[in-house]
């Protein structure tokens, strides 16, 4: 069982990496790119048979407290 957490910068936060990569994509000739947002992807291995609802709650709690900073980042949790 795995928890997958995707962390992205909030829209209001300037993302200089995203801006730089967007420019690079444009230079390479990729058209139609209207935005690039660079975040983090975290995978957490969970013991087999872990209760999915309890794991979702715990991972969301951890994502809020430690894995992301809610002042500047949004996160999405998937358990599978």
């Amino acid at each position: 069982m795995k928890a997958k957490i995707i962390i992205t910068p909030k829209k209001a936060v300037v993302d200089p990496q995203g801006i730089t990569v967007k420019k690079a994509l444009e230079h390479m000739g990729y058209s139609g790119v209207t935005g690039v947002h660079i975040g983090k992807y975290i995978e957490i291995d969970l013991a087999a048979g872990t209760d999915k609802a309890a794991a979702t709650k715990a991972i969301n709690d951890a994502a809020h407290k430690l894995l992301s900073n809610p002042v500047i980042e949004d996160y999405k949790v998937e358990i599978e």
């Binding site: 910068p9 936060v13 300037v14 200089p16 990496q17 730089t20 900073n69 002042v71 500047i72």
Partner: peptide, 17 residues
Amino acid sequence: LTEAGLLPGALIRNRDL
């Protein structure tokens, strides 16, 4: 101190990286 919530806001990557 910002991460700990003792001060508001956050410090992010310098704009020129």
